[in-house]
Design a protein around this nucleic acid. Structure first.
Lengths: 360, 360
DNA sequence: TTGTAAGCGTTATCAA
DNA sequence: TTGATAACGCTTACAA
């Protein structure tokens, strides 16, 4: 409540200039008119309040309130060339680990005033390319894609963006060698596959199976499977790799039990799954049929879905840094934007959680 | 491969005009220069190819390819006043029903060339208001918010947007009376609460409980609980309402069992839960303690989470039209944009799935 | 501390 | 069928 050296004209209605195609909202010019300064002063006040004289600032403040001014970011971006919008492409969001990542990404970007432009690709490289092209039209401040495998066109677009100074990040994977073209924030799925094999081998299992994702394009799952099989075979174990049926992955996990017991001449004693949904399904079906878990069949999942540890027996799994990936991605984006450097990747820790379903 | 009446100048390097602060990408002007027409002709070709002469079109087509032109949507929006971006605010995305909705929304918007600007609110009305203000700066083509309850400031912003012709949609709820200010796409949670009560009453239960969400701001869960309790009491049943502990909802469901058995003088015989996570936790804990389900305790969930039907006994629940809400929202947005009318709401069907945990 | 002028890349309007 | 011109709302560069 301080005295106002130069009071604003008393107005019943804010003096909106009748723009040719204006959409009714107050613009900088409206605010400036009311505050009796020019647009640029208002713009300055909004960006660097300290550089505006206190009395002027006060008038502007009031004018902003009266007009309920809301900056047009399109115009701002067009003029400045820098947006505060991060484009992210993920395979899906429904009951998947990517939901956690996107959630964390969104929450971590918000305090920095960055918005999230989101597109789902359904694990399709073609859709990824389409969506990337669409999203690039907004000149995003940074681009986040999932995984390292992209269509050639996608790769070109990403490289062009990176060459133009836009940070590009690949999430949910991390291969330091060979030197990746973009920052990677995630973990090495081959290492996870090896650890899964070692865990089951250490428990004495020699007849193993990897129940892979039904999604042909889930390359990370396949990669874990390949590493799992290689490690197991190197240790002299027998490994069967089978692919889950399409459809509800819990169902697929349940139905996989038959395949596992039929296919192997001698029954498999331990199964590693591409995700916890398959693992839960398999575990529940095994229990429903009276199989002892882990006695007759050990089950190991991946993803640490919330329900797994509440089952009886609790599902052993790999805890993935799903939310951490989102947070780390936001931080990498912020750092890259702040210092105008390319984004920097990180390897994030995962953990194999040995629970009852593999003998604790 | 048709003859080109007026061939493009052969160029090793596309002639990028050295813009004052250009960010390297080709603009309409670059394409026009190369095609030897003016910007507006290229713009026309892009929007209405039919209105451009075939020979000109061909030259433009080649120029577009050579320059790898990608339209700047900021500039387009600024000039035209219409964006193709839908802003959506949801409480969260991690392992929740909203993941399904956002996924479906994203997929349904994509074919229409609409992009999704997403923000999560964490069930906080304050964050909803902040995020809405942020997102409005992009002048979205439509605005999607979750639920009917908003902070006063949010309401003002939404009303201003709607008054300005921007479709505003509230999802995940539907109250036709009193006439809602915005289009609602969802279902009536009171009706669900009543149906949950009737289901348990019909199975003969007279000592009921509603295990509410720990999230104070999950008003829809509370509303279901209120309707549940009212219906049960009207039928002469006893109803206890308790709130789940904060933290992992499966854990909260498990821990609720003690509360249920302690608090009631006479033990509760059936529990309706605010969501399936609580329901699963409760069911699993009851089984772990050797309680017969539904014999000693019937459990009813909400949300139809994928795992519920695989438990033993399978969890009875309410199937919510999570994905349908996303699809219907996209359709309503498209229709509103096409005909320039306010968005129209829809009541979507839900279903109570009677499974084994309430006696089938 | 404030203002002027020019432009960001596109589309609307009107004229040719 | 094509073009000239003037916006859209904001920011940069430079001047006062």
């Amino acid at each position: 409540m301080q005295a106002n050296p130069k009071p604003l004209p008393a107005l019943a209605d804010p003096p909106m200039r009748p723009g040719r195609r204006g959409h009714g909202r107050a613009t900088l010019a409206d605010v400036a008119l009311l505050a009796e300064v020019t647009k640029i002063t208002v713009s300055r006040y909004l960006r660097e309040p300290a550089t505006v004289a206190p009395a002027t600032a006060e008038r502007i403040r009031q004018a902003l309130q009266r007009t309920a001014y809301m900056p047009n970011k399109q115009a701002g971006l067009l003029a400045s060339g820098r947006s505060r919008m991060v484009a992210a492409l993920v395979p899906n969001l429904d009951h998947s680990v990517f939901g956690e990542t996107v959630q964390a990404l969104s929450e971590s970007l918000q305090p920095a005033g960055l918005e999230l432009l989101l597109a789902s690709t359904g694990y399709s490289q073609a859709r990824e390319e389409e969506q990337l092209a669409a999203v690039l039209g907004w000149a995003p401040a940074a681009i986040v894609v999932t995984g390292r495998q992209h269509a050639p066109g996608t790769l070109r677009l990403l490289q062009a963006a990176a060459a133009g100074g836009t940070p590009v990040l690949e999430i949910w994977d991390h291969h330091p060698q060979p030197e990746p073209p973009f920052a990677q924030i995630g973990f090495d799925h081959r290492a996870v596959g090896r650890a899964m094999a070692r865990h089951l081998l250490a428990a004495g299992h020699r007849r193993l199976a990897y129940l892979d994702s039904s999604v042909a394009e889930d390359l990370r799952a396949h990669q874990r499977g390949a590493a799992f099989a290689a490690t197991a075979r190197a240790a002299g174990a027998r490994v069967q790799r089978l692919r889950a049926a399409t459809g509800d992955p819990f169902d697929a996990g349940r139905r996989a039990l038959d395949g596992l017991r039929r296919a192997a001449g001698q029954a498999v004693s331990a199964v590693a799954c591409a995700n916890d949904q398959l693992g839960c399904g398999l575990l529940l079906e095994a229990r429903a049929r009276g199989l002892a878990v882990p006695g007759q069949l050990a089950v190991l999942g991946f993803g640490d879905f919330p329900v797994g540890r509440h089952l009886a027996p609790a599902l052993s799994t790999v805890h993935t840094p799903s939310a951490e990936i989102g947070r780390a991605t936001a931080q990498a984006v912020l750092a890259a934007l702040q210092y105008r450097t390319p984004a920097v990747g990180t390897a994030l820790p995962w953990a194999l959680l040995a629970r009852a379903s593999t003998g604790g």
